[in-house]
Design a protein around this nucleic acid. Structure first.
Lengths: 330, 330
DNA sequence: TTGAAAGCGCTAACAC
DNA sequence: GTGTTAGCGCTTTCAA
């Protein structure tokens, strides 16, 4: 920067102002400085900028690692969400620092901000750690969570209306004639618990009873989902519908059913949750609840940046809609 | 840091040394300093550290956005690879800055290092930009590419042996009795071109002729793959095997075939490439060439860190093996 | 509209 | 083994 100042015959501070597009610069001086900078292939040093300004223009995105799934979060849903966040951050001129953090060490997430490495944190999923997240938020660290809206939360969340989504999916299965619907999903986690609540609501609104034995609270590891479906078939459990609280689980369930000679949708109707890309292209195509990834990214970033500016930021509930495809049509 | 120094009755430099685990510190002083730091919930400021040391301890991971797929890279393969890289970086104490960059603006990747934001760059896929990558590498920016080994490359690559993989997959299809095998993949991209070369080699080694009309050079967008398969069926093209140069493409092809009433593997054998998680759990399960994601991450990071240390870093070819599942068994 | 100068938090070369 | 000190590259307050 000093070099440019010398070459342009001005002071470094003028160069700094010109390069950052400050309003207090002469148009002519600015263009001259810009040209010299371009010729020198000069780029502002991020560390200096960050040290002085106290901002990193970087946001941390934390993907918790679930020990149950042996550290392999490979759900395409995450990648889509990550993409949505990346796009939104780019629009706002922020970089994205991605960390995988063990679900039981969420404290580490606050380190990202404590070290000044990031200006705020987006956490994907609240897991079992409602209280811990409240603590982090209370410490004043800008924080937004992708997840469910919970009572007494001090942190902001963005997500679909999980209860409504669960109700829409289950209601659709019931309206298509299913009467004994299996629920797949770990109801220990808030999002899935709410989807399960929707599953219960849909039955209640139609005056139908729910068989609790049809609720299978399992983690979404393909091998587990497959095992569970196979176990149900082996035990001759009666069911004519499956609501899996994620598309990947739904697809795995479908493949386990097909493998066992059970036809989908003819014998069993199946619905998922997320609407990941492949949902439209598998066979049969999958009915599901759409989670709008692009909007999700936009909202997560918008809410976080508002917090960084010091404004109070409210949670966002995204539009939640049913997408009907072949897996529930007969 | 000054506060800690005062409280510990030492100089800031001692604190700095203690906190960074320098060998030149008294054990006793160190623990005292550590305790005070912990009590104060102090963490070193990354910007100051980076500014002074000239290192960011951050690596940029660039995921090119392909305009053909409308900016939506949702292949689970990427997420697995990203996970592998993240794990390896964490082991070495590096952070991961993820950028989505348009394939035609790869210059931006070098900005990450020019601004000092990252110490090096891992680029996922070399696309059509061999020459441009050579330029960036020539500029001395530590750079590793996930992709194919090419003649006259000045940059380091890590990847499987694409030619061998293509040959293994195609050879297996031929050995299982397929004679007219469709190749799906954009052969303009080096990796897929090499896989196609393997496809040709497998035929040649068995003294079989290849019908060029069976090579379908399409981009891996689910809708396009599906269209292509449907078009082939509509035109009554004769084929009894499909080698898709990615698992997602293979799965989409299978679903398009099933939808049209073509049985897999009974009527048509299908093999993919990557061995993404779902490959084992779809119906039928997918035969494919395994790309070891964990090792991939380890190698990419190892090669890059070696370059950062100033050592010359050679490219790595990962073990490439065939995984046989139901989609090619009859 | 520009210049001068201080200082963000840290590390490392040098002195003791 | 520890202290002193300079300075990494930048922004911003204050003065002109």
């Amino acid at each position: 920067m000093a070099d440019i100042a010398r070459m342009a015959g001005v002071n470094v501070s003028t160069v700094s102002r010109a390069l950052s597009g400050s309003a207090l610069t002469n148009e002519e001086t600015r263009t001259r400085i810009m040209e010299i900078a371009a010729a020198l292939k000069y780029t502002v040093n991020a560390a200096g900028q960050s040290l002085r300004s106290g901002q990193s223009r970087t946001i941390g995105v934390v993907i918790p690692i679930d020990p149950a799934s042996q550290g392999h979060v490979s759900d395409p849903f995450f990648l889509s969400l990550l993409g949505g966040i990346a796009d939104a951050l780019t629009e706002h001129g922020y970089d994205m620092l991605v960390s995988r953090i063990h679900v039981d060490e969420l404290e580490a997430a606050s380190q990202l901000s404590a070290t000044g490495r990031t200006d705020g944190v987006i956490l994907i999923g609240q897991w079992h750690h409602h209280d811990q997240l409240n603590q982090i938020a209370a410490r004043g660290i800008p924080l937004v969570i992708w997840g469910a809206r919970l009572p007494y939360q001090k942190y902001a969340t963005v997500g679909t209306d999980n209860t409504l989504g669960g109700e829409l999916a289950t209601g659709h299965l019931l309206d298509q004639g299913a009467r004994r619907i299996v629920f797949l999903g770990d109801i220990e986690l808030p999002e899935y618990r709410q989807r399960h609540q929707g599953y219960l609501n849909a039955h209640a609104k139609r005056g139908l009873l729910v068989d609790p034995s049809l609720t299978r609270a399992i983690a979404f590891v393909p091998a587990l989902v497959r095992q569970e479906v196979e176990a149900m078939l082996a035990s001759k459990a009666q069911f004519d519908g499956v609501f899996a609280a994620s598309d990947v689980a739904a697809m795995t369930a479908i493949s386990a059913l097909l493998r066992a000679g059970v036809r989908v949708p003819d014998d069993v109707l199946v619905a998922g949750y997320d609407d990941i890309g492949p949902a439209a292209y598998t066979h049969p195509s999958l009915s599901t609840i759409r989670q709008p990834m692009h909007e999700a990214g936009q909202s997560l970033v918008a809410v976080l940046l508002r917090q960084i500016k010091g404004e109070p930021a409210a949670s966002v509930v995204l539009p939640t809609e049913l997408v009907v495809r072949d897996s529930t049509r007969r």
